[in-house]
Amino acid sequence: MEQLFILTLDASNFILAIVLVAMGLVIIFGLMNVINMAHGELFLLGAYTVVLVERAGGHFWFGLLLAPLVVGLVGLVVEELVVRHVYHRFLDTILATWGLSIAIKQAVVIAFGPASHTVTNPIATSIEIFGTPYPVYRLFIMAVALLVIAVTFWLFFRTAFGLAARGVIANRDMAACLGINTRRLDRATFAYGAALAGLAGAVMAPIMSVDPQMGLGFLIPAFLAILVGGAGHLAGPLLGAAAIGGTDTLAANLWSPVVAQIVVFTMAIVVIRLFPRGLAGRWFGR
């Protein structure tokens, strides 16, 4: 029983971490039809912001607050310099952002070296859950992820900005005709998505080794989560991450992490093939 509980906790942890990364991705993809391959590197920049703040003598919490702002700003620049030029060429957005991801990753290698860094864990205590110690910081990450989900849903379903954004998702031309400044909306959305990636990187930094390769490890599960869940709906990444993260944790416990990865990927490919609009597309329609 306790083991099952800890397993569920582990799974929720992984799921919410994926959601944290996938949320920004799905917002950018849903609104602008841009597959942002550089999202993993925005995540990376978030983590390195914290490293930089700590190196300068600042506290972790300050870094956590600063990371989304810094990475959001980077997102704004990237959108202006690169992404907006390829909006109308869908597949090229994948390539352009992939090139960016190589460049950003290499810039990080040049600035910080290829070795991994560690970030101090700000809440290094554990609490007993059913007699098993569980790190408090992991619970904190889950809380942050839930907060991000809540804020994002509030933003998109309860504000004027969200209404305009959903209007653009449904029909971009019509929204533009009705006087919505789609250009400004694109910019804001990309920056918001990037800021979420930065926040995710910063919040995950204490429990990961911060190195230039850390982005890719999260990018692919996040992508699969979106495709499995469905990119057309904000609930998509939640469902997809639950499917991906749940399967992964279960298979990793039953067999091994390698088998888990293969099982997850195979499952994702089959689901994507059978339900191209994702689980959310199948269940909620659009």
């Binding site: 597959i35 869908f90 597949l91 992508f223 699969l224 495709l227 990927f265 490919i269 093939r273 191209p276």
Partner: peptide, 24 residues
């Protein structure tokens, strides 16, 4: 075949296959 996989989805799926193949 069937519903078919379009553009970006094909890219992501082949990406995933490459990662799985390397692990294998």
């Amino acid at each position: 075949y069937g519903k078919g996989l379009q553009g970006a989805y094909f890219a992501i799926v082949t990406l995933a296959i490459a990662v799985v193949a390397e692990r294998l």
